[in-house]
Design a protein around this nucleic acid. Structure first.
Lengths: 344, 344
DNA sequence: ACCTTCTCTGTAAACGTTTTCATTTTTCAT
DNA sequence: ATGAAAAATGAAAACGTTTACAGAGAAGGT
């Protein structure tokens, strides 16, 4: 089917040298004489030779692949992170292999096995769970793995995250500073570490301002728009108990809340303030433009790959000591979905 | 650093057999005796052996990789397509390698070279341009490449697309059927094949209803929200010449147009109807909910990988004849951003 | 007992590189 | 010219598999 592909041997024959010389001409040009170097170049040109990467990798015992484990590649949330990672990896001569785990532990394990089978040199985890094979790995030899996005408490692996607690604290504080006292927490799933951290920040803000925490003002969602709609309907229906501000753990839920608020004839932000989280692409174009916490996703990816490349670099000493998580800063983006607390 | 990894030889030694037998026990279990099979299994268990994929691939002359060329992995538009591809590939035992070309022909060429260097078995193109090395490839040997998303006229490679022309035609017709006569075309970049097709559909709808095409009612954008805002400001400012309906080549631009319309104090859809394209995730939650053309992106990805796997399958006869593009159907999603043409 | 046939296993070649080591060629001071 | 040092090259091993081939037993029919 394919025309026969040129190997290093073909090049050697054309150039009238040994394959060793061809290889050297390619990888350590300074050690080969001017004239033969030219002969080899010419031979490569005429044969159209491209090195068989698999053979080289076998010999060098590396793959040049960085495996990226992501819970759902279909979720646009990850695309910017991906982009940051891909760019850094590509610049360093690595390729990015995506493993869509679909949150399935079996698939996670399968992909994690790529590390052992030399199919990948390193791994970046975007999902907040350690694949089984890794958990059992000997404690001394830290595998070339970096956690991004969600931290995994006590796993000792290099991690890059945003400070969810602090960001939530600041967002909630912003609402408090605008006079809001009844502030709801539209949270993510209970078991999700992001939610745990964000809820902690929300609570700290209330506590520090002497506001009691009302468990009825917490809604457990799943980051989706629909969850936000449900939250809005449930929290905003009763004018008596209605919060004037809502801190939402995702822009999706914030948008859902706003949809529900409009349904109920409430104006945002005049009647109710809604704070989002993420700063998704459409946040600024929504009506009203969303006040939110900007997650620097691309930056997150860049940091993750930087950390990993650093870890992979043979020149840097092998740091076995647990390193503190790298924290990429968030930013409060104040738009028009929040405002002063209505009187009354 | 790593503890020494077990090779097939270690397994053979533990099991007291030859490496050939180990290999056979793994790949053709029926040809090896019951007892040795068990010995091998045991040896694998104790050694923790996992086959070195690189070595196997070198021997088998395949990589198990499908290279996915995407113009910008950071663009959420692609995530669902990716997901469809990844799922199909994974099911067939292939891995997906993403190549983010950033629309750079050099990067495209670099990645395309992966095919030659055995680093990838096949390729899916999500960008509408043939990488240089492919263009020069001999006409008879069709490389294992599938085009998705954007068609490349006259390239003869298997392609899967949506029928942009027809979808635009239907969308525009919908506006016409609601009484609109002055209908604008908020298009993408001129050189983009998607735009060419969509604009053709828009024009055909007008023609078939005897409506003259007013070049002033076309705005060339770049699919972004900002372009939509610019389009809206420019097209809607003058009440005299203002169109009552706008067909937009992307939901982003549709949203931008709506933002601009609201700025100008126009109501959507009472004063002006806006038709989008894509059905992005937030389309339904926008205010007003967006009428749009649903692009089945995941489906697109599924079809692409199906086509490719079919092409790769040695069992199916090698079809050299040019095949017609696979067309995945779109769907008009009528929400509230369009309505009847206002009187007057 | 002997040949045939089958089932099972081992030997060794091959895949296309890189790199060590030894060898050849060149350079250059004497 | 000569030898030593330096530079350039080639032969061959190695990376970890799969598989063609052949050989060794075992089974079974005559």
């Amino acid at each position: 089917m394919h025309e026969k592909i040129a190997t290093i041997e073909d090049v050697a024959r054309h150039a009238g040298v040994s394959i060793a010389t061809v290889s050297r001409a390619l990888h350590k040009p300074d050690v080969v004489s001017q004239t033969t170097r030219e002969k080899v170049q010419a031979a490569i040109a005429t044969t159209g030779y491209t090195a068989n990467v698999m053979a080289r990798n076998l010999r060098l015992n590396r793959s040049g692949m960085i495996l990226l484990l992501v819970p759902d590649i279909g979720n646009p949330f990850f695309s910017a992170i991906l982009s940051g990672i891909e760019q850094g990896a590509s610049k360093a001569g690595y390729n990015v292999l995506i493993g869509d785990t679909q949150n399935d532990p079996d698939r996670e394990a399968t992909y994690a096995a790529y590390l052992r089978s030399n199919q990948a040199d390193a791994m970046i985890l975007l999902n907040g769970r350690l694949p089984a094979p890794l958990a059992n790995s000997p404690a001394n030899a830290t595998p070339p793995v970096v956690i991004a996005c969600e931290r995994i408490p006590g796993c000792g692996l290099p991690t890059v995250i945003i400070d969810n607690e602090q960001a939530a604290f600041e967002a909630t504080t912003h609402l408090i500073n605008h006079g809001h006292r009844k502030i709801a927490n539209v949270a993510g799933p209970d078991n999700n570490i992001l939610t745990v951290d964000r809820t902690a920040g929300y609570r700290r803000a209330l506590s520090e301002h002497g506001i009691a925490i009302d468990p009825k003002l917490t809604f457990v969602g799943d980051y989706s728009i629909d969850a936000g709609i449900a939250a809005g309907r449930s929290l905003l229906a009763d004018a008596k108990t209605r919060p004037t501000g809502l801190f939402c753990a995702s822009d999706g839920m914030a948008i859902g809340v706003i949809v529900a608020a409009k349904e109920l004839g409430l104006r945002v932000p005049e009647d109710v303030s809604v704070f989002g989280f993420d700063d998704i692409h459409l946040a600024a174009a929504y009506d009203p433009p969303l006040t939110t916490v900007r997650q620097p996703r691309r930056r997150l990816g860049e940091q993750a790959i930087t950390l990993l490349l650093d870890r992979l670099d043979p020149k840097t000493p092998n740091k076995t000591g647990k390193t503190d998580p790298v924290i990429v800063p968030t930013e409060l983006i104040i738009r028009q979905s929040t405002g002063p607390c209505p009187q009354g």
